[in-house]
Amino acid sequence: MEFSRLLDCLAADFARLRAVSATDPTAGVPTCPGWTVADLTRHVGEVYLHKTQAIREGAEPDPWPPRELAKEDPIALLDRAYADLRHEFATHGPKDPAGSWYTPDPTVGFWIRRMAQETVIHRIDAELAAGEPIAEIPADLAVDGVDELLKVFVAYGVAEWGDYFTGVLAESPGRTYLVRADEAAWRVSTGPGLFRVEDGAGTGPADVTVSGPSAAVLRRLWNREEADATSPVTVVGAPEAVEELHRCIVVATQ
């Protein structure tokens, strides 16, 4: 996606998140057990400020968050943090360096993409907590989100921090997954210490196929579906193979 498009999506999803979060700060967030909407709002504000500092200082701040942020009203914190983040995005080019845990792309552009995806997922959290309809997720943003999740979170996570995935992949017999989101497709191969993602459907059978509309696939992989709703996503494969993919995603996104 073009960075200008990602910034537009970020703005739209921030506005929706901000509006929904103000309706009932005490409501529980079903997709983030133990959190209220106020906790969710504070978390997003803290994330925005963390990335702001990563851009300004060229390194991710640690430890984080500062204690004084806990005293700030969650909505006020969210507003201030978003304004600071957008200022950094406006005054830096996407190729400018920034502190990042993702060593292949330590740039401002990485954080533009990451914050657009972070915000759409958390505005879904807020909508589910408030009992609000889920606003449309643009297809291009959803496809990009699936791509980011599989490659940046899981594949990179397994390659860099493989010990965290030992309990999931150490006994893997070696499996193939086909993920389809509208016209986009990814072929995933797993095994002990392995999570490889290739663009396209590839050839040959897959142990598991996950397919559906792009927004629905994004929500399914991020575990952001309504508990009592019928999913438009089709999952075909043995339960233990499906569980392997799910557990890899959970570990990568903790």
Rank of each mutant, 00 (worst) to 15 (best):
E2D: 15
F3I: 12
R5I: 08
R5C: 10
L6F: 10
L7I: 13
L7N: 05
L10A: 04
A19E: 15
A19Q: 15
A22V: 09
A22N: 09
T23S: 15
T23I: 13
G28V: 08
V29Q: 10
C32E: 09
P33H: 13
G34Q: 05
W35D: 07
T36N: 07
A38M: 07
R42K: 13
R42Q: 07
V44N: 14
V44T: 14
G45M: 07
V47S: 04
Y48E: 13
L49P: 06
H50R: 15
H50F: 15
K51Q: 15
K51C: 11
A59N: 15
P61H: 02
W64N: 12
P66F: 05
E68Q: 14
E68D: 14
A70C: 07
D73K: 03
P74L: 03
P74I: 02
I75T: 10
I75F: 02
I75G: 07
A76W: 00
A76I: 02
D79W: 03
D79Y: 03
Y82A: 03
Y82Q: 11
D84A: 14
R86T: 13
E88C: 14
E88M: 14
E88W: 10
A90S: 15
T91P: 12
H92M: 01
G93I: 04
P94L: 00
A98N: 00
G99E: 11
G99D: 12
S100F: 03
Y102F: 15
P104V: 06
G109T: 01
I112Q: 12
R113N: 15
R114M: 14
Q117E: 11
T119D: 02
V120R: 03
I124F: 09
D125R: 06
A126P: 06
E127Y: 01
E127Q: 15
G131Y: 14
P133L: 04
P138G: 02
L141G: 02
L141E: 08
V146P: 04
D147V: 05
L149P: 03
L149F: 03
K151Q: 11
V152T: 14
V154N: 09
G162Y: 00
G162Q: 01
D163A: 00
V168C: 10
V168A: 07
L169H: 05
A170M: 03
A170W: 05
G174A: 11
Y177W: 11
V179E: 12
V179C: 00
E183K: 10
E183H: 08
R187C: 10
V188F: 11
T190Y: 02
T190W: 07
G191C: 08
G191P: 01
L194H: 07
V197P: 01
V197N: 01
E198I: 04
P205Y: 06
A206F: 05
T209E: 12
T209G: 03
V210A: 08
V210R: 01
G212D: 07
S214W: 03
V217R: 01
R220D: 08
R220A: 09
L221G: 04
L221Q: 12
N223D: 14
E225I: 08
E225K: 06
E225H: 05
E226V: 00
A227W: 03
A229W: 06
T230L: 09
S231N: 11
P232W: 01
T234Y: 02
V235A: 11
V236R: 12
G237E: 06
A238Q: 13
A241E: 12
V242E: 11
L245R: 01
I249V: 15
V250E: 13
